[in-house]
C-alpha cells in the first residue's frame, strides 16, 4: 500500500507539469532579480515580453500541431516568406489591409500544404515540413530577389512598432490576444476538444465519429496561419522583409511548447503552458544578457533545458506503466 501512495504522489506532480515550469520561471525571476538590479525593472519586464512575442505567437500555432501528434518545421520559413510578401505590398501602393491579408493568406496556404500532405496523404510530418521548410524558404528568396525589402510605410511600421498608452508595445498585446484566443479555442470549443481527442488516440477518435484527417490538417493550417501573422508583425517591427528572417524559429517554438508541458506524442498540454515555456526561454536569454554571459552559453543552456523538460515528461510516463 505504501508503494501505491508514493506512486500517486508522483502522478500528481506529473499532472501539474505546467505549474512546475511556472515555479521554475518564478525561481529564475527571483534569482535574476537578486543577481542584477537591472532585471526586475518595469522597462526590462516589458522588454522580456516584447522579446517573447514573436516566438510566443509561433508557439501557439506550434502547440496545435504538437497536440495532434506532429510538429511543423516550416514555420520559420513561413515567417520569412510572409514577411517578404507583406513588405513588398506595404510600400504604400495598396491599402494597409492588403499586405496584412496577403501575409496571413501566405501562412494559411503553407499550412494547408502541410496539413493535406500529412493528414490526407499520410506522409510523416517530419518529412513534409522539412520539405516545405526548404520550398517556402526558396520562395522567399525568389519573391525578394534574395535581398531585404525596405521602404514599408509608416502606417505599416506602426502595426507592431506602436505602443499602447506609450508604454506597452502593441506586439505584446497581439501576442497575449492570440495566446488567449487559441487557449479559448482549445478549451472551450468542440473543435478544441476534438484536437485533444485526436492527439490522444487518433484511432479511438476516428471510431468515435471524429473526422480525424480534417482535424489534423486544420491544426497545421492554424499553425501556418499564425506563422503568417508572425511574419507580418516581424516585418513591421524590423521595418523590412528579409528572406533569411525566421531561420531556426521553428525550433524555438517547439522548445517553448515542450518546456511548457506539451507532450511530443500529442494530446496533452495546457494552453497556458506554451506561454510559460516561451517566457522561460526569453528570461534565460534576457537574464544571461544582463549578467553579461556570453551568448554562446545561452544556446547550451537552452538546449539542456529542453532535453530536461522532455526527460521529466518521459520519466513521469514510464513510471505510470
Amino acid at each position: 500500500m505504501n508503494q501505491l501512495a508514493v506512486k500517486q504522489k508522483k502522478l500528481h506532480l506529473g499532472a501539474f507539469k505546467e505549474l512546475v515550469m511556472l515555479g521554475v520561471l518564478i525561481l529564475m525571476f527571483i534569482v535574476l532579480s537578486i543577481l542584477s538590479p537591472a532585471f526586475a525593472t518595469k522597462g526590462n519586464i516589458i522588454n522580456i515580453f516584447k522579446q517573447t512575442a514573436i516566438n510566443g505567437i509561433l508557439a501557439t500555432g506550434m502547440a496545435c500541431a504538437i497536440l495532434v501528434g506532429g510538429f511543423d518545421l516550416s514555420v520559420g520559413s513561413t515567417v520569412g516568406l510572409a514577411g517578404v510578401i507583406a513588405a513588398l505590398l506595404a510600400q504604400g501602393q495598396y491599402p494597409i489591409i492588403v499586405p496584412i491579408a496577403a501575409a496571413i493568406l501566405t501562412g494559411l496556404l503553407a499550412g494547408l500544404l502541410n496539413g493535406v500532405a500529412i493528414a490526407y496523404l499520410k506522409i510523416p510530418a517530419f518529412v513534409v515540413t522539412l520539405g516545405t521548410q526548404s520550398i517556402i524558404r526558396g520562395l522567399a528568396y525568389l519573391a525578394s530577389g534574395g535581398r531585404p525589402v525596405f521602404g514599408v510605410t509608416k502606417a505599416y511600421e506602426y502595426i507592431a512598432g506602436g505602443k499602447l498608452f506609450d508604454t506597452i508595445p502593441l506586439l505584446v498585446i497581439y501576442y497575449l490576444a492570440i495566446a488567449l484566443l487559441i487557449g479559448f479555442v482549445l478549451t472551450k470549443t468542440v473543435y478544441g476538444r476534438r484536437i485533444y481527442a485526436v492527439g490522444g488516440n487518433d484511432q479511438a477518435a476516428s471510431v468515435s465519429g471524429i473526422n480525424v484527417k480534417f482535424i489534423k490538417a486544420s491544426a497545421y493550417v492554424l499553425c501556418g496561419l499564425i506563422a503568417g501573422i508572425a511574419g507580418m508583425l516581424l516585418t513591421s517591427r524590423t521595418v523590412s522583409g528579409s528572406p533569411i528572417t525566421g531561420e531556426g524559429y521553428e525550433l524555438d517554438a517547439i522548445a517553448a511548447c515542450v518546456i511548457g508541458g506539451f507532450s511530443m506524442d500529442g494530446g496533452s498540454g495546457k494552453w497556458y503552458g506554451m506561454i510559460i515555456g516561451a517566457l522561460v526561454l526569453s528570461v534565460i536569454s534576457n537574464g544571461l544578457d544582463i549578467l553579461n554571459v556570453n551568448s554562446y552559453y545561452q544556446l547550451i543552456i537552452k538546449g539542456v533545458i529542453v532535453i530536461l523538460a522532455v526527460f521529466v515528461d518521459v520519466r513521469g510516463r514510464s513510471k505510470r506503466n
Partner: peptide, 24 residues
Amino acid sequence: TEDRKVTGLNLIASVRENMTIISI
C-alpha cells in the same frame, strides 16, 4: 471496439473527456 486501449479510449485524457467526446 475490441481493444479499448487501441481504439476505444484516449488513455492520457480524463474520465470526463473520454465520456463526453462523442456527445460534446
